[in-house]
């Protein structure tokens, strides 16, 4: 029998604002993503110097997830929280930076620190390392936000007992355009976990 599942908390980063459960936690007038995300990170008092080494997609996904996972009740075990993320642009923004560094044979100096981010699922690794998650994870590429796929996968993981909770959502970054919406699915909460609610919260 399937369990009753709920969207326990959700977070967005878009339009120079960081939201938790629909409420603005931080806003800033920076014209570029780099300035905004750095200010947003500092506003949350997250002491994690590796943040500054991440590429833009990882910074976006990491900070959205961090705000969300910090709501995790201390008495609950976070370790078996699975992660299912998705986006449209994959890691294309960083892929282009890497390509720029290797296109000239006379000036061929690829950066290892850039190269390690030329996969979209690296951002899941960053989240997992910070929060010590030893759980199932997947990253999917879709043309548009796909509530049906996220709902089916999260439900399957939770109903089969492979995860206690699932961090799901969308984190897309390309060419200074960004959009992140992550939500935590589990057995507690007031918002039912279904496709309609996922779509509604995404569009908030």
């Amino acid at each position: 029998m399937n369990k009753e599942l709920y969207i326990e908390n959700f977070a967005h980063i878009r339009d120079n604002k960081l939201y938790l459960n629909g409420k603005v936690l931080f806003t800033d007038a920076s014209e570029e993503f780099s300035g905004f995300i750095k200010a947003a990170y500092k506003s949350q008092d997250t002491k994690y110097p590796k943040f500054f080494k991440m590429d833009n997609l990882s910074k976006l996904a990491f900070l959205t997830a961090d705000v969300l996972l910090n709501t995790f009740p201390s008495e609950e075990n976070i370790e078996n929280t699975a992660i299912i993320l998705s986006n449209r642009a994959s890691s294309l923004d960083t892929d282009r930076k890497h390509q720029q560094s290797i296109k000239d044979e006379e000036n061929y100096y690829p950066s290892p620190a850039v190269f390690v981010y030329t996969l979209p699922n690296i951002c899941i690794g960053e989240i997992s390392i910070k929060h010590k998650l030893y759980s199932e994870n997947s990253f999917f590429i879709f043309e548009h936000f796909n509530a049906v796929h996220l709902f089916n996968y999260a439900s399957s993981l939770l109903n089969s007992g492979k995860a206690d909770k699932v961090l799901c959502g969308w984190a897309d970054y390309d060419d200074d355009k960004y959009d992140a919406f992550l939500y935590l699915v589990g057995p507690n909460g007031n918002i039912k976990h279904n496709k309609e609610e996922i779509t509604r919260l995404y569009k908030l």
Binding site: P49, P110, S111, A113
Partner: peptide
């Protein structure tokens, strides 16, 4: 400074470049 293995590779590239 707490540098990691990727930082070490980055320093190797810096020495070359």
């Amino acid at each position: 400074l707490g540098l990691d293995s990727i930082d070490a590779l980055e320093l190797i590239v810096m020495l070359d470049k």
